[in-house]
Every structure is written in C-alpha cells, then in structure tokens.
Nucleic acid binder design. Structure first.
Lengths: 139, 139
DNA sequence: GTTATAATTGCGACTGAGAATCAATTACAA
DNA sequence: TTGTAATTGATTCTCAGTCGCAATTATAAC
C-alpha cells in the first residue's frame, strides 16, 4: 500500500523512484515505533543495504510531504522560549507558508488533556501543542 | 515578582544569583513574545550588557526548571519520525524521569483541535502534542 | 569587613546533525 | 536505445550548542 502511495506521489512531482528511496521506505515500514535519521541509517547498514546518510536526509522530507511518515517527537535542540508570568499558557498554530504564528488558548483543551493524563496514570507538568497548517490569508 | 521566584529557586538549589543570571532574566521579562538563545544574546549585546553565549545556554535550563519560561516552539532539528499507514495518529506523554513514552489517542481531542482551528480561520494539516510529566511508576 | 570556598564566568576549542557541492550514475519517457 | 534531468555517495562545510579551564565572584561563616 504505502509503496504505491509513494510511487504516485513521486510521479506527480516528476521525481524518480530510486532503489535507495524504495529501500528507505521499506525499512521504515518494516517496524513499528519511532526512529531518527541516524538510527535508520544504522538499521539499513546492518541489513547490508548501501544507502548514504545524505539520501536519508533527502528522503525524509519527501516522506513527510507525502504523508507517509509523521514527525512525532522533537528533541530539545533549537527551541524557542517564552516567559510565563503574566503571559498565560497558550498553544500555537504555525502557518506552513508564511510562517506566521497564531496563539490560542482553550480551557476545554487543557481540561481534556488533564483528563487523558489521569486515564493513563500520568502526572502532566507541561505540554507543547503545535498545529501546523495554513493561516487565514494563505489557505 | 519573577526575580523573587528565581532568587528563591536558586537558593533552594544552593546556586548563586549572579549579575549575568539577573540580566538574562530581566531581559526576558522586558518584552513579550518568543525568543531563541541567539536572539536573546543579541538583545543583551545591543543594550551593552556583557553576557557570554555560554551563560545564556547555561541559564535557560534553570529558568525552565523554575517554571519562569516555557519551551513553545521546537524548530525542526533532531526530530523523531514514525510511519503512518496502519499505525494511526497518536500523541505522546513523555516521562521526565525515566524517559518512557506513553502513546495515546483521543478522537475528542482531535475534534476539539479542529474546532479551535476553525475559530481562527486556520486550516490544520498536522500537529504535535507532547505532554511532559511523570509516568505511573515515577510519579 | 575578611576570608574561605564552591559556584560561575568568559573564552575558545570542540562536536555532531544536517546542508551544500559536484562529478559520476541512474530512472524513465520518447 | 538513447537523451536528459534527477539522483546518488563522498566529502566538505556550517553553525547551534557543549565542554574544559583558568580567572572571577557570590555567599556564608568568622
């Protein structure tokens, strides 16, 4: 299934379905769970598949764009911060086109998260919700 | 207010309230909005405050820990991914102590987000929700 | 006010993920 | 089969963030 999706996605964009891209996709779909680019490279190397680091980094954006993979955890680096006192917690919608940021707050959302945490016996301390999409002007 | 919070936080941890830490906190609270470490350094430099890059990077974790600032946007670098087909969208709770990851999904949450986007004329494409706290075993 | 000392600073060197470069290779439409 | 535009791997480059260390400084005890 996913290989057909990828193939058509590439065709639509006038890109080629190469051995390497195929191997990368196949590998990603051969296991469940998170991975980062480096881990993926190691997995492929272990199986004897010859794919360069550069190809992995070049293929990931394509898989993201085609919806075949999702970004799940963003590790610490390169963060933006904000002071808290007198500013109130809020979340963000980020426009993929113009980069503008819409701040929003919803008590309903906060309460729901609290409820979900409780269900899993988790004690939530903080959270980050980032909705990516297109803003009023760019959609 | 925030300076007192910081002072007490440092005292509690046996750390010192230095001129540099004070200047950094003061600067952060002198404006509203996002910043990243590099921007903060420039702001301070422009005002003639002499603080090194290293001190900024060393102070940020303290401010995070004391709750005086929050991480709001995590820019692209060092992400983890996950394949989507047959895996279904879900969000994550990450334990600050043991690092374990709890996956969860809530249609109610998805619907609410959709509703919030609509309210702001935003067309949501994807999102990342990361709840940080303590898991069942570590709390 | 002195003094002891543990924490902190700035500088500069280091690190490592990811991007850029480019000649050689390859997918694919005609 | 062939032409060509896309792609590859190897290598180099970049730059945010970290580390090590000698010099400095905040704080608590005297």
């Amino acid at each position: 299934m996913h290989d057909i999706v990828f193939k058509e996605f590439l065709k639509r964009k006038g890109l080629k379905l190469t051995t390497e891209r195929n191997a990368i996709l196949k590998e990603i779909y051969s296991f469940h769970g998170h991975f980062d680019p480096e881990e993926l490279l190691l997995r492929l190397r272990k199986k004897g598949t010859r794919v360069s680091k550069a190809s992995i980094y070049r293929t990931i954006p394509l898989l993201l764009e085609s919806g075949l993979i999702e970004e799940v955890i963003k590790v610490a680096k390169h963060s933006h911060y904000e002071h808290t006192y007198g500013h109130g917690h809020h979340d963000h919608m980020i426009c993929l086109k113009c980069g503008s940021v819409v701040e929003f707050h919803s008590q309903e959302l906060e309460d729901l998260q609290e409820k979900l945490c409780k269900k899993d016996g988790f004690r939530g301390i903080s959270h980050t919700l980032e909705i990516r999409g297109y803003c009023k002007r760019c959609r």
